[in-house]
């Protein structure tokens, strides 16, 4: 089965991942952040890049199978959780705020998908 879905959530996740990567680059090169040259911000930046790619895929591929959708949804959630924990231990409120934004995007995506599924089922039931 394929399904249409709202891209609004994906765009929010993309935005959050871009913010994450930008702040990581800033932190990596700025002494005042206390994170200059640290592996922790590289890790979060890589996680941000993966999140960007996943959300791009989610946004650009309008019709997709259940497996890909499930994989992306779970991967992004794990990425958000991991980056949030990392942001907490890096004491970076910006990274944590970006993950909050990504989580909102993720929720919009999941709720939107569920709503669309519900509409499709209703339509199918009406056709019956």
């Amino acid at each position: 089965m394929t399904q249409r879905h709202s891209t609004r959530g994906a765009w929010l996740i993309m935005l959050a991942s871009l913010i994450t990567m930008a702040i990581c680059v800033y932190d990596y090169y700025t002494p005042e952040t206390g994170l200059i040259g640290t592996g922790g911000v590289i890790t979060v930046a890589v996680a941000g890049l993966l999140m960007l790619l996943a959300s791009l895929t989610m946004g650009l591929v309008a019709n997709r199978g259940c497996f890909l959708q499930g994989f992306l949804v779970v991967s992004i959630l794990l990425d958000i959780i991991g980056s949030s924990v990392a942001g907490y231990f890096l004491e970076s409120p910006v990274i944590m705020a970006a993950q909050a934004l990504a989580l909102i995007g993720w929720l919009i995506n999941v709720i939107g998908d569920a709503a669309e599924r519900s509409v499709e089922i209703d339509e199918v039931e009406d056709e019956d």
Partner: peptide
């Protein structure tokens, strides 16, 4: 409500980023 929340979160993120980026 969701849109407002998103906008709020964006504002928070931007404010936090600005606070970090503004020179001392």
């Amino acid at each position: 409500k969701i849109r407002n929340f998103v906008l709020g979160a964006l504002g928070l993120a931007a404010a936090a980023a600005a606070a970090t980026l503004v020179p001392m």
